[in-house]
Design a protein around this nucleic acid. Structure first.
Lengths: 246, 246
DNA sequence: TCCATTCTTTGACCCAGATCAATCGAGTAT
DNA sequence: ATACTCGATTGATCTGGGTCAAAGAATGGA
């Protein structure tokens, strides 16, 4: 179940202690990866990639939060992915970007030049294997989100999003299942609305409602405390474990 | 762009002229595939897989239509994927099924026993490579559907679904772009509703509206004629090519 | 300090789509 | 024929969330 992580592998020579590809790589392969690797930072609000642009790299988020969004001509936008640290960006085998990628907070990306990375992929089965696994995980996540978008109420949508963020945030440790969690809410109300297929007003109202009901506690506007994760998952309409133990 | 298809490869010894894995395979590999391959048919309405079940095979749809659905405890259901001929089912590297898979019409599946298929995947980079490509395509499709679910009106949703079906149905040839299309609508109003995050009544009303507006013509309840694909795509809120030429 | 800007909250009202209910075929079993 | 079923249609009504509008926070210049 816990395959060698493609990310979050400590790396002695890397200032941010982040090796963005594969724990199973031998030192020659890591050498190759280092040669095609570079870091790049983006400021909050800045575009990382515009839909349709040529993409000459793939990579993964080291720190910060970025979003994948799709837009219709009339301006309606839908977030189709949330990129948290360790998430992969880019599509080997295709040049044009299919989505807008925006930095929500300041973002540090670990990038690999695309052509050499694709070459490496062809020559190194376990990297390609791991990438397949990650893509299948993303597909599962996207499909879970389709249920949220299609069938959940506004309140359930908000609770689902908060549950995801709580789960992904460092302070929540799923192995040592704890009922309390606490995290920084790095999305604006509008970004949440775009993720949930709602308006920002509805997001604000439902957050207030969850606050009033004691499901969450807000410190300031952005710091969220969840006194009881079970309660939050109930509000999200998830079955008891909410996929946390999956 | 048009990589060797994992499916739809003619196969002399196969009664349905469908080789479900890879055009680049050499004859030894095809031999191996044949050894782990079997066909299985399902009746309309029958479950192919229940969420949570052990899955001992992966495979692809040869004929018919199947659906991937997720269900909440209270019965709300959301279709998260539509499986048309050539679509792949199953997740190498995971045993439990994550969704319900239901046969909407009579379905013929080409199955591969899972363990040997995974072994083949490990040993045959181009199969694994092709599977990655297909998974990335599915991910794109899922994300496109998130936009539909989150931001489109009921009418646009119906038009989007009809456009997808028209595109996938044999009679529509995207290389030779034609303005008219015609296909069999193999989903009930309820199944469409589950795909679109609507109720079956709304689906029925919007189909009636599109019919009245001349966007589609119905012969009986299930045979759809689209006099002008451009018009349909407009109704779907898609940009002009609607991804048809992507 | 005082704007100005950006994000957020809250209120009042409205409407697209849900809900509830009745009816209408088209099979098909009796 | 008649009665049942299952899907589809259509109508009447209700409501969750959208829309429009105003007013609070928080931040950052000048």
């Amino acid at each position: 179940m816990t395959a060698p992580s493609l990310t979050h592998v400590k790396c002695a020579d890397c200032p941010i202690r982040h090796r963005a590809v594969c724990a199973r790589c031998d030192s020659d392969e890591l050498e190759l990866l280092d040669q095609i690797k570079y870091y790049r930072s983006y400021e909050a609000g800045q575009a990382i990639i515009w839909s349709g642009d040529q993409m000459d790299f793939v990579g993964s988020v080291v720190s910060g939060v970025a979003t994948l969004t799709q837009t219709m001509e009339d301006g309606r936008t839908q977030m189709v992915g949330l990129l948290l640290p360790s998430d992969f960006v880019g599509r080997p085998g295709r040049d044009g970007a299919a989505y807008n990628v925006m930095a929500t907070t300041n973002v540090m990306m670990c990038c690999f030049r695309k052509r050499p990375f694709e070459k490496l992929l062809d020559e190194t089965p376990h990297i390609s294997h791991r990438l397949l696994e990650m893509t299948l995980d993303e597909l599962d996540a996207a499909r879970e989100w389709m249920l949220v978008l299609g069938r959940k109420t506004a309140r359930e949508k908000i609770a689902s999003l908060l549950a995801i963020l709580a789960r992904r945030d460092s302070s929540f440790d799923k192995a040592n299942f704890q009922t309390e969690s606490e995290f920084e809410l790095s999305l604006t109300r509008e970004a949440m609305a775009d993720y949930l297929g709602l308006t920002l007003e509805t997001v604000s109202r439902q957050i207030s409602a969850l606050k009033k009901a004691g499901v969450i506690v807000l410190e300031g506007k952005r710091h969220v405390i969840v006194p009881d994760m079970g309660r939050l998952l109930e509000e999200a309409g998830d079955d008891s474990d909410g996929g946390l133990l999956a």
